Simulated assay, not measured.
Amino acid sequence: MIHLNHTIDVLTGGTYSGNSSWNKKHSDIDNCFKLYQITDGELFLTDENGEFLLESGNLYFINGSKLVSQQCRKSFSTHWLHFIPKDIILHHSLLAMPLVVNFADTLEMVAGSLPHIEILISSAHTSGREYLLESLRMQTGIQAMIVSLLEQHSWTSPREIYSIHTIEPAISYIKEHFTEPIRLKQLADCCNISPNYFHKIFSKALQTTPANYISLLRMNAALPLLLSNEYNIKEIAYRLGFYDDAYFSRVFKNHYGITPGEYRKRRKELLF
């Protein structure tokens, strides 16, 4: 039997329009993978090697880890989403992808779902059946794009896969317990290696430290909770393992550049 864990966590998304005043540098918001479906105008993205033009009518994969800045010189409109694969090998492999990959020839795979991303994220204005079908279409489209990326570009080597498999027990533990206090030694013990060696392998595989990865999971989990309005900010802080809502707000602002309250009011404008 083959066991797969290729589910995609869709973090946030929506529609956005900007003009020549829109100019953004890399922040923690960008530490994920993105899809931009440009519906009007054009957008310029840069990495350490140069500049990329994103044009109307095309669907683009964006490797946020390599993003330096984004700029609009006239105007643009886009559907967009941020995602992270749950599978650690896929995550590591996507980190090796170029900043921008144009999927102009495979636009239909997710083009039908991206305009409905607001509904998918909130799940508040659609039936259970519609939500399930649209979610499956989105997951299938993103997975098909990942297959195409892995077929066209170099990615994780067998040696790297072996190292990543070494830390998989700790990754599983983090995903199950990220709302609880976690010590580095606990994670290293999951893998039967020393804390220093674990930290080295983990940081190389995910290009972030274990502590920052735990914080990332907490911040990602905060987004749908804030969007639902079911809980107040203090309740959300406690659910995510913060015993002080003021500290939660500081961490959230350090990560996203906005407070939890601002996210609720101005999510589309501030997170794209």
Results as ranks from 00 to 15, higher is better:
M1Y: 07
I2C: 01
H3I: 14
H6C: 05
T12W: 11
T12K: 03
G13V: 07
G18L: 01
S20E: 15
W22A: 12
K25C: 02
H26A: 15
D30C: 04
I38W: 00
I38E: 02
E42F: 07
L45G: 00
T46H: 14
D47Y: 06
E48G: 02
E48L: 09
E48A: 13
E51H: 07
F52V: 10
F52A: 10
L53I: 07
L54M: 04
G57H: 08
N58L: 04
Y60D: 14
Y60L: 12
F61I: 05
I62L: 15
N63W: 03
N63A: 04
G64P: 09
G64H: 04
S65V: 05
K66H: 13
L67R: 11
L67A: 15
S69D: 14
C72E: 02
C72M: 01
K74T: 09
S75L: 01
F76E: 08
F76H: 06
S77L: 02
H79N: 15
H79V: 01
I84Y: 09
H91T: 12
L94P: 02
M97Q: 13
V100F: 07
V100N: 08
F103W: 11
A104M: 08
D105N: 15
T106D: 11
L107H: 13
E108D: 13
V110A: 15
S113L: 03
H116I: 14
I117L: 10
E118Q: 14
S127P: 01
E130L: 14
Y131T: 07
L132N: 05
E134I: 09
L136A: 04
R137P: 01
G141M: 07
I142H: 03
A144L: 11
M145A: 10
V147F: 09
E151W: 00
S154F: 10
I161F: 04
Y162T: 15
S163H: 14
T166G: 08
I167A: 06
E168A: 14
P169C: 09
I171F: 06
I171L: 08
I174D: 06
K175I: 03
E176H: 07
Q186G: 06
Q186R: 06
A188W: 04
D189A: 14
C190M: 12
C191P: 09
N192S: 12
F198P: 03
K200H: 13
K200M: 09
I201D: 11
K204C: 06
A205E: 07
P210R: 06
P210H: 04
Y213T: 02
S215M: 11
S215R: 09
L217S: 01
R218D: 06
R218E: 08
R218Q: 15
L223K: 06
P224Q: 02
L226M: 11
L227A: 15
L227D: 14
N229M: 05
N232E: 09
N232M: 06
I236C: 03
I236E: 02
I236R: 02
L240K: 04
L240F: 04
F242E: 01
F242G: 03
Y243E: 14
A246K: 13
A246L: 12
S249V: 12
V251W: 00
V251G: 01
V251A: 07
F252Q: 06
G257M: 00
T259D: 11
P260N: 13
P260Q: 12
G261P: 00
Y263L: 15
Y263Q: 10
R264A: 10
K265S: 12
R267L: 08
L270H: 01
